[in-house]
Simulated scan of single mutants.
Amino acid sequence: MTKQKGNLFILSAPSGAGKSSLYKALLQTDPKVRISVSHTTRAPRTGEEHGREYFFVDVDSFLDMIAEDAFFEHAQVFDNYYGTSKQAIFDMLEQGLDVILEIDWQGARQVRELYPDAIGIFILPPSLSALEERLTGRGTDAADVIARRMSKAVNEMSHYDEYEYVIINDDFEEALQQLKAVFVANRSRTPLIQEIHSDLLNDLLS
């Protein structure tokens, strides 16, 4: 039997939709899932570790990786660079692990160009008012920052139909069950079963 290769998932959502809480809960319950760790040139924040939250590199190293075509996708956000390493993703997929890329819709388009089999999941809030309440409830952003996030959220959410799955995060446990179901179901797609169980299929049909 051939070892089953993992699936690459793109997970996107506006800030405050609960995406991070959902994938962290998924990681705790599904040992076959990993979250991609991006490279960045920004300095580590208190409590962050190299290789856990990010791979922290200097600008010259990051630019060298761009020149070597080492990234699935990369972007400059203000004064810092962020990017997703191809090799790190491929290594996990070859181990049979499902990998989550937590990126926005623009990064998702870049990834799909390089890896058309990527499976997109978009997380939506149950309403704009609920989204604003969640952002306000964090207690970390000023009113003008929340207003900018809300404006950006509407633009981001307009791209939901570019994704294979949409999960509305109204009830957290229900949304988590839907997320789990997407991952489990995609491990039984016909092309994957044909690849790893070719001998069985030949025996059954002979």
Rank of each mutant, 00 (worst) to 15 (best):
A108T: 12
H159N: 06
A130K: 08
M150R: 02
I196A: 03
V182A: 12
D161K: 13
F122R: 01
K86P: 02
F90K: 10
L192V: 12
H197V: 06
A153Q: 09
F183K: 03
E174S: 12
M150V: 10
F172N: 10
D117A: 15
E132C: 07
A147G: 03
N169F: 06
E132I: 07
R189G: 15
A130H: 13
D104C: 08
I168M: 11
Y115C: 14
G83T: 00
G120W: 00
A75V: 09
D171Y: 05
S85N: 05
A175Y: 02
D161Y: 12
A130M: 01
A130N: 09
D104Q: 15
S127L: 03
A147L: 05
V182D: 01
D203T: 14
D203Y: 11
I89T: 11
D144S: 14
W105L: 03
T140S: 11
G139Y: 04
G139V: 11
A142K: 12
A143N: 08
L200V: 13
I121P: 13
E162L: 14
Y165C: 10
S129A: 07
G96C: 05
L101V: 08
F90S: 11
I146P: 06
Q177D: 14
L179Q: 04
A153P: 11
T136G: 05
Y160K: 13
E132K: 08
E164Q: 14
G83C: 10
R187D: 03
V182P: 09
A181V: 02
P126S: 05
V166G: 10
Q110P: 05
M157Q: 11
E195Q: 15
S158F: 00
E132N: 10
M150W: 01
E94C: 04
A147K: 05
F183T: 09
A88V: 04
N80S: 10
F78A: 15
E164P: 01
D170P: 04
I123V: 09
L93C: 02
Q177S: 05
F183W: 09
Q76F: 02
I123N: 10
Y82I: 00
S188E: 15
Q110K: 14
G137L: 06
G83P: 00
